[in-house]
Simulated assay, not measured.
Amino acid sequence: MNVFVFYAHVLFKSMGFGNNASLMSALITSIVNFCATLVSIATVDKYGMRTLFLEGGLQMLLCQLVMTVSIASKFGTSGNPGELPLWFSMLVVIAMCVYIAGFAGSIGLVSS
């Protein structure tokens, strides 16, 4: 989670968000984190903390795999992706948001 908080602006800038990358990354990650925390608070009594913890961990693992494969396929070893298509940028941003939601719904709930 620390990687997304500290380096999200770099990821957003490389995805084509331009000069507003820092603002957009902070806004998007904060909103997703807040909403996912509210959902987890509302559902923890129904499903139990263990279920949310396991589901959040699986969600984070799958999102890491999607982001790793997609970024590695575009950037490769050269580090120069060229022009990134909109669908690719949206895929990475959505995977990041789902990862943050998984964190807020599982680890964040258990640690509080």
Score class of each variant (00 low, 15 high):
residue 11 L to W: 13
residue 70 S to Y: 11
residue 79 G to Y: 02
residue 92 V to T: 10
residue 30 S to V: 07
residue 48 G to R: 00
residue 17 F to M: 10
residue 103 F to E: 08
residue 112 S to E: 12
residue 109 L to W: 05
residue 75 F to D: 06
residue 80 N to I: 09
residue 86 L to Y: 12
residue 68 T to F: 11
residue 73 S to W: 11
residue 89 S to N: 08
residue 84 L to T: 07
residue 90 M to L: 15
residue 77 T to R: 01
residue 94 I to N: 09
residue 87 W to S: 14
residue 34 F to K: 01
residue 79 G to W: 02
residue 1 M to C: 07
residue 4 F to V: 11
residue 102 G to Y: 04
residue 105 G to L: 02
residue 13 K to Y: 14
residue 74 K to G: 02
residue 7 Y to R: 13
residue 44 V to Q: 07
residue 70 S to Q: 07
residue 32 V to D: 04
residue 70 S to H: 10
residue 27 L to S: 13
residue 78 S to R: 05
residue 15 M to Y: 09
residue 9 H to G: 07
residue 15 M to V: 07
residue 23 L to A: 08
residue 80 N to W: 00
residue 36 A to V: 14
residue 58 L to W: 09
residue 103 F to W: 08
residue 3 V to I: 15
residue 18 G to V: 11
residue 8 A to T: 02
residue 26 A to C: 14
residue 75 F to V: 08
residue 67 M to L: 11
residue 73 S to D: 13
residue 82 G to A: 04
residue 82 G to Y: 05
residue 33 N to A: 10
residue 67 M to R: 08
residue 55 E to F: 12
residue 82 G to C: 05
residue 89 S to C: 10
residue 12 F to N: 06
residue 3 V to A: 14
residue 3 V to P: 03
residue 53 F to Q: 04
residue 31 I to V: 15
residue 99 Y to I: 04
residue 89 S to Y: 10
